[in-house]
């Protein structure tokens, strides 16, 4: 297992370098002059020249990249050109928000998706199976932004049950924090539940057909024990992989949900930064997201081994 971890860690560094080059290079290809975005309506030429110099935008791109890389290595992510806030502060401010949203969404997805997948596989070909499949497809097909706005109109405007948007830190007011997170987590989670349900169902169907399940049933074990203790454990391997990947995606992929519910997380930060050509923020956040994704992959590998002892021998 240690060997596997070491091998995985070795891959991390070149991956990060490639990601950083891609991020740095691709945003330079974006149309639109960042200085114009900074210079305001009046576009004073003197100020524009100063800003060009200040942010070293006159330097060749490889030089700009080298300067940025040197800063990153020393832990300096730069400063947001839009608000003057250090990028590292922004990351530390937004990351916990996004992690909380992603975790809540994953809990919703797992609580709905996995049981639904199991029930669907056990009752294959019945009305229950078809109903769950229809529900899963609906979850997959309904766009987040539509569901989000609909929930705001019904739950907040009509029923006045939950706050329509915004975010409160759990350290400030835990109750309010949970109230603001319910709807975004449900919107994100129900979409992911559909994906998880489909994968759980197919994994369970494969396992339920295997010899050892048949043997377990032949031994006279009750159906609940067969499914939960014998079949589900083996079916979990692909579900764990998928869950960790989905969690990684949520770190920067909850853009629309964050936008609709005004959750000040990573997704909203990066979209605003792209629109205002706030390069330092885009670079810092994307790099951080890449690290998060790589860590989630590593976590998936470790969980694999814990769940499936045969993989321990293989490593």
């Amino acid at each position: 297992m240690l060997g596997l971890l070491a091998r995985r860690c070795l891959v991390v560094l070149p991956t990060l370098i490639i990601v950083s080059i891609l991020v740095f290079g691709m945003q330079k290809l974006l149309p639109g002059d960042p200085i114009l975005a900074l210079a305001g309506e009046d576009r004073d030429p003197q100020t524009m020249a100063y800003l060009q110099e200040k942010y070293r935008l006159n330097d060749p791109i490889p030089v700009q990249y080298a300067v940025w890389l040197k800063q990153i290595v020393t832990g300096d992510f730069g400063v947001s050109v839009r608000t003057d806030v250090p990028v590292a502060d922004l990351i530390f401010q937004k990351l916990p928000v996004t992690i909380q949203l992603a975790a809540f969404a994953m809990v919703v997805a797992l609580l709905i998706g996995v049981p639904a997948g199991i029930i669907s596989a056990v009752h294959k070909g019945t009305v229950t199976d078809y109903s769950i499949n229809v529900a899963a497809l609906s979850g997959l097909s309904i766009p987040n932004f539509w569901l989000g706005i609909l929930m705001i109109l019904v739950v907040s405007v009509q029923w006045q049950l939950l706050p329509s948007s915004g975010y409160t830190s759990p350290l400030e007011d835990l109750g309010q924090n949970i109230r603001t997170m319910i709807m975004p987590a449900l919107v994100l989670g129900t979409g992911l539940a559909g994906v998880l349900m489909r994968h759980t169902r197919s994994a369970m169907l494969g396992v339920l057909r295997s010899d050892y399940v048949r043997t377990a049933r032949a031994k006279g074990l009750n159906e609940r024990t067969v499914i939960i203790r014998h079949a589900l454990r083996n079916a979990l391997v692909p579900i764990i992989t998928l869950s960790t990947l989905l969690f990684g995606e949520l770190l920067a992929g909850a853009v629309l949900t964050e936008q609709i519910f005004t959750i000040p997380g990573f997704g909203k930060l990066i979209v605003d930064a792209v629109f205002t050509r706030d390069y330092a923020v885009v670079q810092g956040v994307v790099l951080c997201t890449a690290v998060g994704f790589i860590l989630m992959n590593l976590l998936a590998d470790i969980l694999y081994i814990l769940v499936n002892p045969r993989l321990r021998d293989a490593t």
Partner: peptide
């Protein structure tokens, strides 16, 4: 001051009392 870019959501927040 709460920045809410989506006009529909901003209006829904007003209607819900937020």
């Amino acid at each position: 001051f709460l920045p809410i870019q989506d006009t529909t959501v901003r209006f829904a927040n007003l209607r819900s009392g937020s």
